[in-house]
């Protein structure tokens, strides 16, 4: 681990520990298995405050294809002032044998199942992380096929993970939290709006 890389076995161990820790949080991760390989995933819905649904902006082509069915307004329906737009973040952590590090895959969806573009995602990244996004080299994002689902996902490219983690693990004192995934995700997560609750790090 001193070189920033971990073995598959170590990684699976961290995944199990990570999922166990997250069970208590409001966003528990799930441990999955595919062909003997473990991976973890999280679905997280986020409200876009004061924003319209991304999918709600453009197209009104569907309006033309059908006549409204109910013309009279239903006064038992709560008005739509409460319906905020929200988007779905889907994260996967999968071990990469060729890089010997975990890899983060993610997609962001509108409510209609359409993908939110990367640039729109980055518009949502808080300003103080944006600097990091531009400065840091390990946050490069590419699109590739999800190794198990076979669908395209964005991927935080793994080629800088080891370098980053080498520094992190060398700084970590013996009594601090020692889950590799936790250290790594809390470092790279914010640039893709993945924030981990602090409670994950507590050992109790």
């Amino acid at each position: 681990m001193s070189l920033g890389v971990i073995s598959e076995e170590e990684c699976f161990g961290f995944m199990e520990d990570f999922v166990q820790r997250s069970k208590k949080s409001s966003e528990p991760w799930d441990l999955m298995e595919h062909g003997g390989k473990l991976y973890i995933y999280l679905k997280s819905w986020k409200v876009l405050s004061n924003q319209k649904d991304h999918s709600k902006v453009s197209d009104n082509s569907s309006d033309r294809i059908s006549e409204p069915v109910e013309t009279e307004t239903d006064h038992t329906i709560c008005s739509d002032e409460f319906s905020n737009a929200c988007i779905l973040f889907e994260y996967y952590v999968i071990y990469s044998e060729s890089y010997s590090v975990p890899v983060l895959y993610f997609n962001v969806y509108n409510s209609n199942g359409g993908l939110v573009s990367l640039s729109d995602v980055w518009d949502l990244v808080p300003a103080h992380y944006k600097e990091r996004l531009e400065e840091n080299r390990w946050t490069f994002i590419t699109q590739s096929e999800h190794p198990y689902l076979g669908r395209p996902y964005y991927q935080l490219h793994p080629c800088h993970t080891a370098t980053l983690m080498k520094d992190v693990t060398s700084m970590t004192s013996s009594n601090a939290c020692s889950n590799y995934l936790l250290s790594w995700l809390s470092a790279v997560g914010p640039v893709v709006l993945l924030s981990l609750p602090l409670t994950l790090a507590s050992d109790t």
């Binding site: 569907s62 209609n112 199942g113």
Partner: peptide, 9 residues
């Protein structure tokens, strides 16, 4: 509006 939705994937 009471109408269908559309998504271009």
């Amino acid at each position: 509006k009471l109408g269908p939705r559309f998504v271009n994937l």
